[in-house]
Design a protein around this nucleic acid. Structure first.
Lengths: 239, 239
DNA sequence: ACACAGATTTAGCCATGCCTAAATCCAGAT
DNA sequence: ATCTGGATTTAGGCATGGCTAAATCTGTGT
């Protein structure tokens, strides 16, 4: 390596390590341990590879690893995970803003760059964007101090007919879904009213602005909301 | 590796390989073979490492390698090198434009990202910038078809007192130099008149706009010019 | 209590890319 | 023609991070 530039504070985590930490972070949200197999599946590696890696990461102090029971991030491990997530989400925001890349594709591009961009560059981006608090999907962006504020867990599917709410977050895991919403011009900070719900997991009918749309329930469940109408948000929309 | 995504056209060159190709490209400009040691020095590796690598690259068909005599890029090798250079220079342009990063620092950041950004993303950037032909230092950007047009070799130091020319390119190899010029507000496309030259490699006096500046000769030699006044250039200055 | 399936780890491999130390080559001076 | 020093290659290692195949563990059902 071309002189790994000993980062003053932290271990120079490789791209691989960062991917593992990110995956463990997102799989272990509830606080439960993450199973080796689960991790391996998520990353598309053989279970044995994941097993070897968690062993290494435990030795480095990034994971709390109990053989046969799974792993959990240590405090330092979580910090590192949040560092990558911050990079990822700021890159998404930056690409969306400055290249007009639609929200179903920013994830891919951000993933390409998230391991390569230095924290210094990321901070320049954050400053330029006005330190946004959420990315284009509404996912919260960890602060420079690596704290993160997860939004509430209510989804559009929780609304009763007649109630309305503001869309604050959509899972970025499925680009199809994002594209589906984008085509119908349904986006973050949009006000949505639940009009009707079909039984047996049938689709629901909603009002967005002046339009009426049918949404598959699976989609409604992936759309997180804040009850009540849209209020002026802190998200800087224009540069 | 996570399924190297067989790129339809080309070999998925690693970051290391790309760095070697880039170095060989810039060291072998004259068409002469590049010596292993030279290459190793440029990259900061042991000569044996470079030797091993050029062996591998020759087998892959990217290099024309004659043991003990040095290497030269094959046609395919040059294509790959130009691909990286295109990525690098477009990233520099993009960062300078959208983050207002000064020209003495874009090189560093672009280097961080050049191996990670996909050609697809790079093309989006190029389109957004209006397919610029030169980067912030005036270095030519290879086209999408990977052809490049090197500018002439005359430098500011070639001007006789009384003659004037347009600055079209400054070597990006020395950030100090760029910063020095930036401080004096001397930039690409600026018209410069040679006022006076001291003998024995002494400094030269120039006029830039209404100002008069003293420039060390070494600097003048790194500044490439086109004789004659500035003409409206094709470089898209604003988005 | 025990067997068995599925999860997990261990063992052993491979590729990439870097290193140092030890050959070996080659060109210029004698 | 030979010597010799610098360039170059070869030999042998190491770390990272993947893999498959083979052991081993653990919890569940009988």
């Amino acid at each position: 390596m071309a002189s790994p530039v000993t980062t003053s504070t932290s271990t120079s985590t490789s791209a691989s390590v960062e991917d593992y930490l990110k995956a463990i972070y997102s799989l272990g949200r509830g606080g439960e341990r993450v199973a080796t197999t689960e991790l391996a599946e998520r990353l598309g590696f053989a279970a044995s590879s994941a097993s070897a890696m968690v062993g290494r990461l435990a030795e480095t102090g990034l994971l709390d690893y109990v053989p046969y029971a799974g792993v959990r991030l240590t405090e330092e491990g979580e910090r590192q995970a949040l560092r990558v997530i911050r990079r990822h989400r700021l890159l998404e925001s930056f690409l969306a803003r400055s290249l007009d890349i639609p929200w179903d594709r920013v994830h891919l591009y951000a993933e390409q760059l998230e391991h390569a961009a230095s924290d210094e560059l990321i901070d320049l981006i954050a400053a330029k964007l006005g330190d946004p608090t959420v990315d284009p999907h509404g996912d919260p962006i960890p602060t420079r101090e690596l704290t993160i504020e997860e939004s509430g867990a209510e989804t559009l599917a929780d609304l009763e007919p007649g109630q309305s709410a503001t869309l604050i977050r959509v899972s970025d895991s499925d680009p199809e879904m994002l594209r589906y919403l984008a085509e119908r011009e349904i986006g973050i900070d949009e006000e949505i009213e639940m009009l009707d719900r079909q039984p047996f997991d049938g689709p629901c009918e909603i009002r967005v602005g002046a339009r009426t749309e049918q949404l598959p329930l699976a989609l409604a469940r992936a759309m997180r909301i804040r009850r009540g109408p849209t209020r002026p948000s802190a998200r800087g929309r224009s540069a």
